[in-house]
Design a protein around this nucleic acid. Structure first.
Lengths: 191, 191
DNA sequence: AACCACTATGCACATAATTGCATATAGATT
DNA sequence: AATCTATATGCAATTATGTGCATAGTGGTT
């Protein structure tokens, strides 16, 4: 274990750790990482491809990843990033740090809160849209669960992802129920 | 109705609207608003007092609120902010705009996702802490519901706040259940 | 007497996130 | 022939958020 004080690298935000975590699985290009953030880990920590590339440059500067270019013809060269020992240490130290409560910012709930100053039929539509989005997410989670985590002999890493996914599924199906209720309550006002 | 194109003010973020929404209820000082963000509307859109003061200055510059100073002795003067007609128009136009999905960023879920690179006993503690936080939130929501929204003759504005609060209660109690399950699942790995 | 919490405002700096743009080619579709 | 999707990288500018600090009096606790 490489003994390096966490503070030497300054406070690192969780996007950095999320990237490092992905790279503990296998070395990846920024493009691969961006796709991972659109799919699996992005369910728990969202990031755009621009953010990923920028953060990779910082991680490289800090020596937490090593990058090497792979020649390609016909398309831009791939740059493969591998986590270093120092990077692994950072992940471990991060795991010991207390977690923050995720910050709540939901315009839809603000609109419900502000019902008297809002166009109700439009809000109704917006609630329907949100309901569809949660249903889509739920379906996506179910597909992934059945495809990757439904077997018997799961590794510890897989079990962790399964727990996170299970929480996601519970929360999304709860949102579907709750939004249904909210739409009903709003309908009763509308009449 | 003051006909003013929304774009004349540029894109306004939802913190601005959340503040304007609060001010449709009654004129308030920055201090009052900051307290409101620590309590009611802050359940759906979090903001620090510094953010509130900064945003109020912007709203004043744009003519969406009017501010007048109230002399006080012994403590700093209060500055009372009142929403203008233009401000009310902005709120209405905002209500017509589609809502974004709230962006997910939860370190705790990332740690579960990264279970293989994480200290499990520590994660266990972190899950327990999170569970307590959600229980506390749930209890606070229940207290507010019983205190303010349990009567029979609710205004439309109150009904909206009740719907939002009901969603908050559902989501928090779901989180409590789900975290309990996650802790159990993690315990089974630990053994 | 010292300390803390509450009232009341806000600046300055640093970090994070969003949006639009920019480049370049392959292969499939219309 | 033109458009669209996918691959693959990233900069620049703006907007948003977070952290630490600063001020200053009142009233209550240790």
């Amino acid at each position: 274990m490489h003994i390096i004080a966490y503070r030497f690298f300054g406070e690192i935000m969780a996007l950095a750790e999320a990237i490092l975590v992905c790279l503990t699985d296998r070395p990846m290009s920024g493009y691969d990482l961006a796709k991972t953030f659109d799919a699996s880990i992005g369910f728990f920590w969202r990031a755009s491809h621009q953010q990923v590339y920028r953060e990779l440059a910082r991680l490289r500067d800090k020596g937490l990843v090593e990058s090497r270019e792979i020649e390609q013809s016909g398309r831009p060269n791939r740059i493969i990033h591998t986590i270093t020992g120092a990077g692994e240490d950072i992940v471990h130290l991060w795991s010991l740090k207390p977690c923050r409560m995720p910050s709540v910012k939901d315009e839809l709930l603000v609109k419900l809160y502000a019902l008297d100053n809002v166009d109700i039929p439009v809000l109704h539509e917006q609630l329907d849209i949100r309901l569809d989005q949660h249903r889509a997410k739920l379906a996506a989670y179910h597909r992934i669960k059945e495809k990757f985590y439904d077997g018997q002999n799961l590794t510890r890493a897989q079990k962790g992802k399964l727990i996170a996914l299970t929480m996601g599924i519970s929360n999304e199906s709860q949102m579907v129920k709750t939004l249904g209720k909210a739409i009903t309550m709003l309908g009763e006002i509308d009449e």
